[in-house]
Computed example of a mutant assay.
Amino acid sequence: MTFVLLLLVNVAVGNIGINFIRNNQGVNDGIFIIKQSVTFGPFQQHLLSWEGLFWFIMLSIDAAIVWWRLVRIYKRIEIGRIIEELHYISAGHYDHRIPFHLSGDNQRVVTSVNGLVDNVIKSLEDERKIEKSKDDLVTSVSHDLRTPLTSIIGYLGLVKNKQYNSEEDLQKFVNVAYDKSEQMKKLVDQLFEYTKANNLVDRKLEIDAININQLLAQLEISFELEAKKKDISVKVEPLKENLIMHTSAELIGRVFNNLITNAIAYGEGASKIVLSARPKGQMVEFRVANDGKPIAKEVVNKIFDRFYREENSRNTNTGGSGLGLAIVHEIINNQGGSIRVESNEKITEFIFTLPINQTKKS
């Protein structure tokens, strides 16, 4: 169609142009001058006539128009290929990406489409993880609440039906029900604490000036009696020079409380817990270490997961909920720090960092 139109235009314009030139002597003289200045070929030949110059110009215009049309057709073909690939992906082939490389703006479209598909896949995977996390949360909470609740109902049922032989039995049943109630309350409190830690991003923090050496000394005193019950001593390795850090006293207290309590409860065979700190650039690195039984490598990788516990820790003696370390992980991450565990036959260390100067908002 383009060639037919060009042919008709050339014939029409040619007839009009040639008649105009023939009837205008000034135009003829101008064309003669142009003709003498235009050469072509290896022998620098001149155009033989002004008609040749006219048709040379017309053919150049025709070539430019044809090239422009071919480029547009090629671009349209590229867009068609992109649309075909999009239809294929939208049919459910989300692992497919547009494989070919184009030029110019069309390549930007290809890159954007592939990036969009990658983001959609990542969003779907994140959504599945969130759904699984919710299911795990419900399962874990149900398990941890049902066990003490069953005991409470059982023992209170015995009391209600007066199925006890003495006041001593009655007191025993009531004590067990009370202990199980305390266990449930502890779990609910930790769930609430975990939720608060998870929402720190939207919470303005009260920043306090904390002397690190004084903090460690205070922790040593606070946990001395509790640790002594298990024949464990709490020791501090202070900084050589006092260092003031600006952070939330409430949050750092919760971190140390959970880590030290965890070390006392699960540091089997430990004789000491060592608290230490050292500056590390714009961060402070803290360590809570104990010389108890090492943590298995497969456990280290999961230890900060919500509700994760070793099977032998699911007992009434420790009363672990599996939330303490998850709370620690959330608090530290939300304040721009990091935490890791190193454990061997000699020592188990929880190592975490926090900024020396914490901003008002985590």
Rank of each mutant, 00 (worst) to 15 (best):
I82R: 01
I82Q: 03
I83T: 09
I83N: 06
E84V: 12
E85P: 04
H87Q: 11
Y88R: 11
Y88S: 06
I89R: 05
I89L: 04
S90L: 15
S90N: 14
G92D: 00
G92K: 01
H93V: 02
R97I: 10
I98S: 02
P99Y: 00
H101D: 10
S103N: 10
D105R: 11
D105G: 05
R108W: 06
V110M: 02
V110Y: 01
S112H: 08
V113I: 15
N114Q: 03
G115M: 03
L116W: 14
L116M: 15
D118G: 03
N119H: 08
V120A: 10
K122G: 03
L124T: 07
E127N: 08
R128F: 03
R128G: 01
R128Y: 04
R128E: 08
I130V: 04
E131T: 09
E131S: 11
K134A: 09
L137F: 12
V138G: 03
V141C: 05
H143I: 11
D144M: 13
D144Y: 14
L145W: 06
R146F: 14
T147Y: 12
P148C: 06
P148Y: 07
P148D: 00
T150R: 15
T150E: 14
S151F: 08
I152P: 00
I152E: 01
I153E: 11
I153M: 14
I153R: 13
I153P: 08
L156A: 09
G157D: 12
K160D: 11
K160V: 04
N161Y: 07
K162A: 05
N165C: 06
S166G: 08
F173Y: 14
V174W: 00
V174K: 00
N175L: 08
V176S: 03
A177P: 01
A177F: 01
Y178D: 10
Y178R: 12
D179Y: 01
K180L: 00
E182I: 08
E182H: 06
Q183D: 02
M184Q: 06
M184T: 07
M184N: 09
K185C: 03
L187W: 01
L187R: 02
V188A: 09
D189F: 08
D189S: 10
E193T: 05
Y194M: 02
K196D: 13
N198I: 03
N199F: 07
D202T: 14
